[in-house]
Amino acid sequence: MDNGACSYRRFLDGDESAFDEIMKELFDGLVFFINGYVHDLHAAEDLAIDVFSDLVVHKSRYNFKVTLKTYLFMLGRSRALNYRKHQRVLSFTELSEAENALCEERTLEETVLVDERRRAVNAALAKLPDPMRVAVHLIYFEELSYAEAAKVMKKTRKQVDNLLYRAKKELRTLLGEDGEQI
């Protein structure tokens, strides 16, 4: 599995349908990942669109040395952190809108995390600090390798390993018996 690199090569050669394949494969996961940082589904979707438009505008920036998924998640993380840095003003949302957003978030979660057990882990993940949450998300949900996750998080492999170890320990406490299976 090349995580979209092959499709992107085809897109660069002029095959428009290859872009659809990349979107179908990676867009929802990226939105879900960015949402972990920004906690606003619409903003996450907006940022994911920006990330994908980067692929179209700067065609030569992706050098095929990492998987396209890793590259997109790196861009996504960078854009999400940037968004968070500039998002200083708290916005108020109407209750009905909040319910809608919650509902959409659940739908997205169900799309990305098909497995029931994964959803339970995801719920527990919300209680963990950001770095631990992101490490678990990338390795268990997105199935990236340790090296790829380290690249996305701009950390060393060892640091990711340590984060995962501590995250697992926390999750075992939070999930009880279910956590033992992680």
């Binding site: 872009f19 659809d20 979107m23 179908k24 619409h42 669109i49 994908f52 179209v56 809608n100």
Partner: peptide, 13 residues
């Protein structure tokens, strides 16, 4: 409301 696949694609381009 979240965008549909086609809307997302159109927005990207």
């Amino acid at each position: 409301m979240m965008r549909s696949f086609e809307e997302r694609k159109a927005e990207i381009f």
